[in-house]
Nucleic acid binder design. Structure first.
Lengths: 335, 335
DNA sequence: TTGTAGGCGTTATCAC
DNA sequence: GTGATAACGCCTACAA
């Protein structure tokens, strides 16, 4: 034991009667060590409760064995978002069998970008996963150009260099929702869209518009901000302007819940008068009355892929293209 | 520049025309350096874009400047829980101005406790915040006894050594809810409780029972698992057994949402026939119809305190007692 | 197959 | 106030 408590390679070596180098080889699984020696060393390691000192190792290998998951926006909503939770789960699950640790990096306050960038540039992590919702031009662009393996969750808006990213096909998901509404006989379908500075907002609106155009349907759009309140306001405006809608596609479940309430307050039955489809398949989808028909994304899988891609890039792979996964329509009672 | 890109102390020293030691002093804000020297060094640092190498520093200081937030259960629900998100937010906000980084540690699979313990024992972090929901006897106890500054979010069940913890007063919160129901004239009040291996479940039930006893009211309890489905089942059972309840306290909002639906299906008006109070004040509380009256906890503040206490312990403070914060009743439409 | 020795970038303890 | 210099614990040629 040294002063601070943890045994060192040196002590293991002494106990096992070999050199530091040999212990190091055993620890790192080098194939060219005699079984007999390995056993002796492992016994010593067990006896001493030896754990390699990460700092010392990082100093010489220049690998930190840790990756960052970066949330480059102070917006506290990101956190409460079940999407973020799912990504985290997928990422951490994939990283678990690895020796890599997950470091959480959050922009503490608006405009404190430099802190993040400095950290990432400082060689404190081997790579980073960026989970950003808004198209924050500068930061995202700078992140994308960092001399560090990087992968984005969701194609970053306003970044003009090729980057690795994994995302769900939001356009296709929205299409599915609207086409389903069409298939059950709805003809005047409106949408509550999300902010256009978020890929989710932008792409889901695009999907709606594509189908509307193909079906020769007039567009009926109101914008919300993905929050319940925003959804309520948007629903109010939408139905004021287009009172005769018989179908509604809402860009996320959170807004859909309050849209449902607006409808019920106006005496319009769901799904009889207006069929409603949400997006996300969050917990809330099953707590509303009626239960929400919605578009599900394979969130955890996205998280897993994010981690896999990052690991591959760290290992030297050249990956700089988007990867897109399909969604699935979950039919419940609202449509 | 060395091979790997980052400039070192040595290079800064050379450029500034001073010794490594002096640069180190400047970097660490030592007071005894001439202003003139400081300026020269800082200029050099700026020019080179020098960033201290964390590994090298950690190796000699034996401080890692990072703290872990550990979730010692594979249960994926922990993550989706808005409570966890809030804690994370509070912690990271408090840590931001510090040089400390946040490392996320999750038990990847049931029974893989040793991995966590080994990591924490390995001196990879300066301290740890434990966010555990279930009373997982062994692990929690072992965590509590680690030779490392530790603080628990929520008093850990089944740990028999004194530990630092911060929590909300769940008993008092439940009392407030039930007393409020009493105050608006309800006399037959039931509760949907959470699992008893979670402090939140246990304490909230205790609060209900205390008030029931004091008011001479018969207890009417059904147990759920804090999920929407569990809440639905519990509500079904509860109202089958006690059809005449006129008040209901549900141990969390998630279960309250489905309880609301059960009530509506049975034709019982809320709040006219049955007044309902939830717990958490989650997003869902405002998306239900009617909006949920609920008990709010200062989650973000809890997270902040968690970080503050940990930082203090790392700095040497001896803190091994629980800290408890009050809740607030948010009256909306359901009661 | 195993040991020797040098160095990774910092901080800390001395002198000066 | 500043500069040598010795650790810190580990990996990795290179030599044996």
């Amino acid at each position: 034991m040294n002063d601070s408590g943890s045994p060192t390679l040196e002590q293991v070596a002494a106990l096992a009667g070999v050199s530091r180098a040999t212990v190091s080889r055993v620890v790192n699984g080098s194939p060219k060590v005699l079984p007999h020696t390995v056993a002796a060393v492992e016994r010593a390691i067990g006896q001493l409760g030896y754990v390699p000192n990460r700092a010392a190792r990082a100093l010489v290998t220049r690998r930190t064995d840790s990756v960052a998951i970066v949330v480059p926006e102070p917006d506290s909503r990101v956190f409460s978002d079940p999407f973020f939770a799912g990504i985290l789960r997928g990422v951490s699950h994939t990283l678990a069998p690895t020796s890599s640790q997950l470091v959480l990096l959050i922009e503490p306050a608006e405009g404190d970008d430099q802190r993040l960038l400095r950290y990432l540039r400082g060689g404190h992590v081997d790579g980073a996963i960026i989970v950003s919702h808004h198209g924050r031009d500068n930061v995202l662009q700078e992140l994308a150009q960092l001399p560090l393996p990087i992968v984005f969750s969701a194609r970053p808006l306003g970044v003009d260099v090729p980057v690795a990213s994994v995302d769900v096909d939001n356009v296709e998901g929205a299409r599915k929702a609207v086409e389903y509404l069409l298939s059950i006989g709805r003809r005047r379908i409106g949408t509550i869209a999300g902010p256009l500075d978020m890929t989710a907002g932008l792409d889901r609106l695009t999907g709606y518009q594509d189908v509307a155009r193909e079906a020769g349907m007039t567009e009926a759009v109101a914008f919300g901000d993905f929050t319940p309140d925003g959804g309520e306001q948007a629903a109010l405006r939408l139905f004021d302007e287009f009172p005769d809608l018989d179908g509604l596609f809402v860009a996320n479940d959170l807004m859909a819940t309050t849209a449902l309430r607006v409808l019920s307050q106006r005496g319009r039955k769901v799904p009889a008068d207006v069929a409603v489809v949400g997006f996300d398949d969050s917990v809330m989808a099953t707590t509303t009355t009626p239960k929400l028909t919605t578009v599900r994304q394979p969130i955890e899988k996205l998280g897993a892929r994010l981690a896999e891609i990052l690991l591959a890039k760290i290992a030297g792979a050249e990956l700089t293209s988007p990867e897109v996964y399909p969604t699935e329509l979950i039919v419940r009672d609202s449509a």
